[in-house]
Design a protein around this nucleic acid. Structure first.
Lengths: 251, 251
DNA sequence: GCTGGGAGAGGCTTA
DNA sequence: TAAGCCTTTCCCAGC
């Protein structure tokens, strides 16, 4: 592809906030929060209307290099063309040195967020808030996303004996970090409210070692099964709950 | 663009393991680890030679939907064309319903990975293993990446008094998780070797609350400064180290 | 608007 | 295959 034509088309796309794709042979340097160097090869460069850029090889979802909120320039050089994406704070720079540009496309698109309706952790949280009795009869929600000094507890509830229950919800397999997270909230709740509290980790599964740690700390695990509805108008549906440990009536 | 032509071009690209881009108007459904639905809009679909797919809007580096290791099919329908990407384990499916395809490109590219990143934690770890005296005079490395039942300690060393030192290295700001990670290793080391040990968290900075927790547990923080070399042939260079807390000669 | 704390999600690596 | 963990993150609250 002709250099002048290619560069013109890119500049035009940038100024119009189009989504621009550039396919060609290039080297890529990155200096910033880390550094990287990509030797010469064929790549796809994607530039979006919000001035984000990503450089793709022919494998993996994630780009090899990327940057948000950049200011992008492109100019011709002796060898071909060089595209530069810079930002300050943190200071970083991507340099793409093209020795050949095979193709440039410029697509007009809205720069708006796609509306995405989903069955995320937030959804599950909302559903659970409406009815905690699935976890355990008599369990009543008190607060959701309660901010403590050391983090945000997913759900605070009260059991039938009037004891505080801290619930940490995970959409995927719970691990060490999940357990220690819950522990931190427990400590803070207990010191603030000055009373003992129960802690429940709610997740589809838990790693064996994490479960050991959990139980050693007197916390409980409850398995949550939910099915996802293809139609996003409905929220996810929670299929069932199963306590690994029976409720400890130890108060 | 003509439907037959578009679909043919896509199928051809897929069979040849090209990087394929499709620009058009579509709805997107995703069911799997979460669910989501995108209403009709213009999008760019990226399919790579390793059967990964991502769907992009005109902002943000991250795609709105994506999947790895998929099996992809495309076929014409009454309304236009539908592209399906499926995988098992975890079972998930993306359905892209096109009502218009504006453009299809198919680029031949190697399916190789050639990014060299410098300044990774692995790099720093290697450099430190060669000389721990920067952290503290007389500190001698014993082992690197030592596997315990509950995790992998970055560096095990011995101080001038012959006491075991567990070092956890972070290339970015240390947080709660970093501290609890170190704590776990400490507990295990001490129970295995049946002796008291010191623990040092080594990072460019640490969050205030995390530092509190660290100190409350009798662990130490040391600040590490490193500079990144633009050329990835060289490793990152460690500029300096500074103990926040003086060495506790408490043994 | 910027900043900093907190939490999530993909992908690599080793057992 | 599973567990552990790292990362050029992202969001949200607070200033």
């Amino acid at each position: 592809m002709d250099w002048v034509l290619a560069i013109d088309k890119i500049k035009m796309g940038l100024s119009r906030k189009h989504l621009v794709t550039i396919f060609g042979s290039c080297e890529v340097d990155y200096v910033g929060r880390a550094t990287s160097k990509l030797s010469k090869g064929k790549r796809l460069v994607l530039i979006k209307g919000d001035n984000s850029i990503s450089i793709h090889q022919n494998r993996l979802v994630r780009p090899t290099n990327y940057m948000m909120n950049t200011s992008i320039t492109i100019e011709s050089t002796k060898q071909g063309a060089v595209l530069t994406a810079k930002r300050l704070n943190p200071r970083e720079i991507i340099t793409v040195m093209f020795d050949k540009i095979d193709d440039v496309q410029s697509y007009e698109m809205e720069i708006s967020d796609d509306l995405r309706l989903s069955g995320s952790e937030r959804d599950l949280n909302d559903i659970l808030m409406e009815d905690l009795s699935m976890i355990e009869p008599g369990l009543k929600p008190i607060n959701q996303q309660e901010h403590f000094r050391k983090g945000i507890a997913d759900i605070i509830a009260e059991d039938k004996h009037g004891h505080l229950v801290v619930i940490e919800l995970k959409r995927r397999q719970a691990d060490y970090a999940s357990v220690t997270q819950l522990q931190r909230y427990m400590q803070e709740v207990q010191s603030i409210k000055n009373c003992k509290a129960r802690g429940i980790l709610l997740a589809p599964s838990i790693r064996k070692n994490a479960l050991e740690l959990l139980e050693k700390n007197g916390l409980e695990f409850a398995k949550i099964d939910f099915e996802l509805k293809p139609s996003s108008k409905e929220k996810a549906h929670i299929k069932g709950l199963q306590k690994k440990q029976q409720t400890l009536d130890k108060f």
